[in-house]
Nucleic acid binder design. Structure first.
Lengths: 247, 247
DNA sequence: CGTTCATTTGAGCCGACTCAAAATGGGTGG
DNA sequence: CCACCCATTTTGAGTCGGCTCAAATGAACG
């Protein structure tokens, strides 16, 4: 698997059906029975594409479908009144997008592609029909939302507790783990987002993020060349994170 | 309505049925048809009580029911490895508890009462049965989770952007608005949580929180006597919040 | 090879933290 | 009712991490 890219090389662009999709265990059909997965599959529009910078969803737009990224990566953010971006996180293949839209029926965040991106689309109307007759999908949707909530809480906790290096370490460790789950190398990867994006995500300035990378490099924990990252000592990063919440 | 207490005086202790409950519009039956609400009501165990400090749910415990606070208030938190509390937020009447448990089937946070508290309980088994036949409840559950997610994202963004006073101002404004929605005065209320709890929630120290209160008092925006708060100039607090995310 | 943008590095400053002590308030028992 | 005790909150002084402003370096693309 290509270690320099992040999600582009999954071969998913070629409209693989859900049952053969490499992301299946990470995606909605992951915990469904074969029969339920088939029903879901027939309702999903696959193989949609987007150029870098393109908007997957726009804040305030009506939530007319559930979207899942298939390859590539994206940035979730909202625009503040000052016009700056508040970066909520980054989306990897197999992850759903815009779930906060269930609150009001309108998306709460912008999501835009950081790389050439492909995604699947499940219209809300069909989702509701499927929920009517697929108990597994009902459970899966609750699980998905619960997971998103759990993750958001965890991130919030991290911001409240960790210092700059701790946040960056956690960001890297988290990304590494998520890439690993998708079959990419957890040790060598290329960041698809800028330092500024990382900074806005972590509540830091881009200079501080850069300095944290510099420290990790100097300590021999990381090799950094622009956006290419090699994790040499994951334990060292993990040790820095500390303050892990239990449960 | 008693302005000195926060949720104690709703009269909800007396096991009011959902259809007459003052919290109905804030609670699960809020958007259901009368028929659906009746079906839900028959599955809900009402009028359970808890003493201050008592645990509503424990992190790691199996999520066997959906709980909604009916009167009183609670604190959501996780314990870090160092033994400190990471405070995720505070629960007011009409708010559900432990939704992040849907992720794994086990609760992710501790929730403990800050005051004498009463709550309602909907066993998971019954919830699943109801979801099978109540489309409105399906939508409502997704809405509930979406809302919790949206709120968590918003809070995370705030931590990343705002300084100490901005965070405290936002905390007060948020609490004030939530109390108002429950029929309490948004201008006069008594905090059920300590400065330390607020601080851990906002990623600050208790001294810094206290100083923020001091500043607001000195500016004439607030009257503060221990935990009794009078909001004299809500606009001033709102102005301090700034950086509001749109959407 | 030059332009442009992203990233790194440096110097100085400010806000929030730490440590420490005083004050306030609530609750208890005499 | 008052005196006392305890926990909580407020206030003060000094330090440090991360921010701001600014310049240099490096990478990507035509």
């Amino acid at each position: 698997m290509n270690s320099r890219s992040e999600g582009i090389e999954t071969g998913a662009r070629a409209c693989v059906p859900c049952c053969n999709c490499a992301l299946k265990p990470l995606c909605l059909p992951g915990h469904l029975s074969a029969q339920e997965a088939r029903a879901l599959e027939s309702a999903v529009e696959r193989g949609r594409e987007l150029a870098p910078g393109g908007a997957l969803v726009r804040a305030g737009a009506s939530m007319d479908a559930l979207l899942v990224v298939r390859s590539g990566s994206a940035k979730r953010f909202t625009l503040t009144l000052e016009g700056t971006e508040q970066v909520h996180g980054f989306v990897l293949p197999g992850e759903a997008v815009g779930l906060e839209g269930f609150a009001t029926g309108r998306y709460g965040c912008e999501v835009s592609a950081l790389e050439p991106l492909s995604y699947c689309r499940l219209p809300m109307r069909k989702l509701e029909q499927l929920l009517e007759r697929l108990p597994g999908l009902r459970r899966e949707m609750l699980r998905l939302l619960g997971q998103a909530l759990d993750e958001a809480l965890r991130l919030r906790g991290e911001l409240a507790e960790a210092d700059a290096r701790g946040r960056v370490a956690r960001f890297l460790a988290d990304l590494s783990a998520r890439l690993a789950r998708r079959g990419f190398s957890p040790h060598e990867f290329r960041l698809s987002m800028s330092r500024a994006d990382i900074a806005r995500h972590l509540g830091l300035t881009l200079e501080t993020v850069s300095r944290a990378f510099g420290t990790f490099k100097r300590e021999g924990w990381l090799r950094v060349r622009a956006r290419d990252i090699s994790v040499l000592r994951p334990e060292a990063l993990a040790a820095l994170i500390g303050a892990r919440s239990c449960g």
